[in-house]
């Protein structure tokens, strides 16, 4: 079976600005792929090209084996695109909006009615189907926004920041729905500013920065680039420089740096087991009054790879 998405050397330039620089990525059938990047990294441009809204300057996109450039109808028919904004008619009901998109994708009348009912059930809006979308809450609008992309049962669902501006309860409902889709075998391309969403939903993650895909892999693979050291923040009373020297001598500690007038940052392997050793090592020069241990995570990997946090 062909991959859900194969894109090779995708490139887009706006005047003198290289927005996307030779990005290649593959999403297997049934795989959920997260695309992370700071603002202006090229995510939206990449998604626009993958969904056929923007013509690339170079490179190719294949959706379920269909070339987007040569056979756009077949390729687009296999994509469900959920834009970041609520792209629905607020004056129409949820059902009418779904009917519009279903007709746009050529669903026959009976099949359309059936699918509308299924999708309304999936997004939990059967009871509000005949209310105007403009009267929905933000979370409900987000859910029907996703539902409109599911009517034609796409091979690949592209979700661009699907939980922006929703309350935690609605966000959870959306993520549960997405989990359900992935469990059902749908392929997913997911972008978000929320690292924990990507960690929860996606099996593989690509990190995009300045138009380039700087890293790609599973969460474990990306985090392993940082090594296996934990980051330990110590709060101390006493001589920080002397304490740092003594801590550097502890086996397993690779770095000990003062970060303020009363704090030190360590990089250490197995730091939880070394805490008594740390306390003993600084005895006589300082007293440890507080400890915070951070295990390696995707956020740290992202920071390491791009030099900025995701919400910068």
């Amino acid at each position: 079976m062909t991959d859900a998405l194969v894109c090779q050397d995708l490139t887009k330039r706006f005047d003198h600005h290289l927005a996307v620089d030779s990005i290649s990525l593959t999403i297997a059938r049934g795989e959920a792929y997260g695309l992370l990047g700071p603002n202006g990294a090229g995510k939206t441009t990449t998604i626009s090209m993958l969904s056929g809204l923007l013509r690339p300057d170079a490179g190719s996109v294949h959706v379920a084996g269909h070339a987007l450039a040569q056979d756009p109808r077949a390729a687009k028919a296999r994509i469900g695109y959920v834009p970041q904004e609520i792209a629905l008619y607020p004056e129409l009901t949820g059902r009418e909006n779904l009917r519009y998109f279903g007709r746009l994708y050529g669903l026959a009348r009976r099949a359309l009615q059936y699918r509308i009912a299924e999708v309304l059930d999936l997004v939990g809006l059967t009871g509000r189907a005949d209310d105007k979308v403009g009267d929905y809450s933000g979370g409900m609008q987000r859910r029907i926004n996703i539902g409109a992309a599911l009517l034609h049962e796409p091979t690949l669902l592209i979700l661009d920041e699907p939980t922006v501006g929703v309350d935690p309860q609605s966000r959870n409902a959306i993520l549960e729905g997405v989990d359900e889709l992935v469990a059902g075998g749908m392929s997913l391309l997911y972008t978000s500013h929320y690292m924990e969403e990507v960690e929860r939903v996606c099996q593989r993650v690509g990190i995009i920065d300045k138009g380039r895909l700087v890293a790609e892999g599973t969460k474990r693979e990306l985090v392993s680039r940082l090594g296996t050291s934990d980051r330990v923040e110590l709060v101390l009373d006493g001589d920080l420089t002397a304490a740092a020297d003594k801590l550097r001598a502890v086996a397993g500690v690779t770095e000990a740096v003062p970060t303020g007038t009363s704090s030190l940052r360590l990089l250490a392997e197995g730091s939880r087991h070394l805490l008594p050793t740390f306390i003993g090592a600084v005895e006589g020069v300082a007293t440890i009054t507080g400890v915070e241990i951070t295990e390696p995570d995707l956020e740290a990997a992202f920071l390491h790879l791009t030099g900025s946090t995701l919400r910068d």
């Binding site: 004056e91 129409l92 009418e96 519009y100 007709r103 746009l104 050529g106």
Partner: peptide
Amino acid sequence: SPSRRRPRPILALVAANLRRQARD
């Protein structure tokens, strides 16, 4: 996949827009 027919996007657009107009 649900059964399909030839898409009629123009009719779909006109129908949606007329509905919107009718509610104004």
